[in-house]
Amino acid sequence: MTLTHPEDTVYGQVGDATVPLRFGDLSAEYKVLRERAVALDLSGHTLIEISGPAAVDFAQRVLARDVEYLTSERCMMSLVLDDDGRVVDQVLAFGREDGLLLESSVGAGARLLEHLRAVGDEGVEIADRSADLTVIGLEGPYAWGVVGRLIDGELASLPFEAVSDTVWNDVEIIFARTGFTGEYGYQMIVPVESAADLWLATLEHVTPAGQEALELAMLEVRQPIPRLETAGDVNVIEIGANWLVDVTKDEFVGKEAVLAAFESRQGRRTVGFSGGDTVPEPGARVLAGGEDIGEVVFAVRSVGLGTTLGLARVEAGLAAAGLELTVEGAGVTTLTSPYIVPKSWSIPII
């Protein structure tokens, strides 16, 4: 843990990382994220540097999206797949002068690193940079205002997935316009020794939110949460993360398996649902007209909707919004995404 937090912070183990689940009240953190802006401790995201003469070719082979022309002023979200088309991780890839910097999803760094090293090529150096770099995030409809007060107002209006190497308090940082929740989002990749100072400076403008509030907001806009959605024998098509895979690309690890799954038109599909007074466990059965059609992927109590919100993986012919289904005896309704409309969609950056 790079950053220090209040004594009453509730931590949890997520994969290989211990992360702040909430700093206080989940409901309050969520509401600030959706209404104003929050700071996010993303130190559970591992940073992996891909360098060497064959770095870009290697990245092009292991990432499911096209990064051949990813300049140092751009970043891109992509899946990393294994040969069977299963998700190893969902990463944020930053173009760099001498290769790429990959940011893992929370707690997935060790698994990603192991996979990259297993498929590594000659001429490629793969280095875990977690000991010297960490990530701080900002999300919310007014996160752009925080950027202006914290660093530079011009950075706030960067295009989505644009990156700028900049300086904060004489420290070189990588600044990016990103976002997981549909709200305006930014990330700051900062040297570990300066992270605490930047975190405290950020907290002069916003309050922090933990992993629970972040993941709830991600679910509401169907931003995939790998640790909760990729368990078991499921492929990209069943997860519904097609948009994080570029099948028009010539070649990448897992492409054949993904195309085979797509062309087979078999398997289940994922759909959101809400309803019920209790939160069903992953694996709870989903019924349609009394017939078992699939299972719950995961569910949470939604602060915004005031009811249970979750994802179900059901037979493809029933993966559609507007259906009345049953989960553990409770009536639920399948939903159209996004389940909550982000406030940022109607607020310009000024």
């Binding site: 948009w243 797509f262 919004a321 159209t336 995404s337």
Partner: peptide, 13 residues
């Protein structure tokens, strides 16, 4: 058919 029903259209997606 590669586009999913839940896929975001703008920005990401």
């Amino acid at each position: 058919d590669w586009i999913t029903d839940d896929q975001p259209l703008f920005g990401r997606g």
